[in-house]
Design a protein around this nucleic acid. Structure first.
Lengths: 228, 228
DNA sequence: GTCTATACTCTGATAGAC
DNA sequence: GTCTATCAGAGTATAGAC
């Protein structure tokens, strides 16, 4: 099922090596020699594939952010009820952060390593993504289905909560990613006091994304499920 | 009011320089020469005050964790109702993470830089602290005042949310730390569906810590409010 | 594409004079 | 306590042969 027949190109091996080392030791804490060694080539050969160490980092970030946004867009496509949009955004965010932990941690931790133009690119990606959260929260507050005291604080707090999954989740632990994603949906709905009239809305009341949806949206990729 | 008369000892200058640089560039990304320069002495003199670069890091972490735990212990001392304990733990956590952002970010980000025994020391501190959260959540669930589907996931999710404040909060922004702390209390109470019978409990219903309490518990310290 | 060899800078840390 | 000078190794990146 999860068998990758192709024996991984050099580019892929470098990409995976970078994910492992950057997420474990940090970008600054990883040397070119170490990276080359982990990818199975010499430091000089490495430079036939990556313009520079920072190019490698920025590529990881752009690709990761892009996948997150594309998945989120697909998840809320055509959905009108704001509490369902919010729930699905949380579910995708948690599922992705639990499935691509190394990548998400690198994106999260090493943003400040980017210089100038690269930094702006990644920032624009993040702003576009977070705008989806802001609009779901705003629409939910406007239609009184969500109770949001401070839009900005709530958005940042919920994003922090859902991003945290990349830091503490372990696939060998007691829960699997999908369960965690649903539990977070419930935390998000509860924390915004989602309700229709007097009746509060729970994860089970909404049409969330099922396991099959994620299998389609996020087919097995080499960096998925990778351990710490 | 916030005037520090004493002109800062060499130890303090080094400590503050380390906080600034480690939080901005990371531990691995900060060199000894840079650190010495920022503290206003030569690299060699630096070593009259710090055994090694890692000693400096571990001291920052132990002191920071210690302050957080002492503040939290003081905040819940003698409090029996679990929802009040949880609320105050969240309030302290957020207030500290918003007030000592550099320090908290270093503690959060550079844990993996610690080797062996140092790592275990910091881990033990964190476990002791998080046990207070676990017990508040557990007691709240047992007395049915909190609704906690999964104790572990909820604890980790709420801690991630409250820790996030150190990453996004800016004192020059629209909210002050105290406001943020109260808003997070409300998010935490809502996310655990805190209620007595049918009536849900909000931050305003509980006796939280007031501004004066924090002034006493966390008197102005040189690393407080420091910017990014 | 791969490699060995190397350039030049910076790393954490120390010796020893003052 | 301060400093200048220095160590051995690791930092990123390139030259040039194959």
């Amino acid at each position: 099922m999860t068998t990758t027949a192709t024996p991984a190109s050099t580019e892929q091996r470098i990409h995976l090596a970078a994910l492992r080392l950057f997420s474990r030791q940090g970008y600054a804490g990883t040397g070119i020699r170490e990276l080359a060694d982990e990818a199975g080539l010499s430091p000089a050969s490495l430079y036939n594939h990556i313009g520079s160490k920072e190019d490698l980092l920025v590529r990881i970030m752009l690709e990761g952010n892009d996948r997150l946004e594309r998945t989120a867009v697909a998840a809320v496509q055509g959905i009108e009820r704001p509490e369902v949009r919010l729930a699905r955004l949380a579910q995708v965010h948690v599922f992705v952060h639990g499935s691509f932990r190394q990548e998400c941690r690198v994106i999260d931790a090493e943003f400040s390593e980017l210089s100038g133009a690269h930094r702006q690119l990644v920032l624009d990606q993040r702003d576009a993504y977070e705008a989806m959260w802001a609009s779901a929260l705003q629409d939910g507050a406007n239609s009184a289905v969500l109770s949001v005291a401070d839009l900005r604080v709530t958005r940042l707090a919920l994003l922090s909560m859902c991003t945290g999954v990349a830091h503490w989740f372990r696939p060998e632990g007691p829960n699997d990613v999908y369960d965690i994603s649903v539990r977070h949906v419930d935390l998000v709905l509860a924390s915004t006091r989602a309700a229709r009239g007097r009746r509060s809305i729970r994860a089970g009341d909404l049409t969330l994304l099922d396991r099959a949806w994620f299998d389609l949206a996020l087919p097995d990729q080499p960096d998925r499920q990778a351990s710490a």
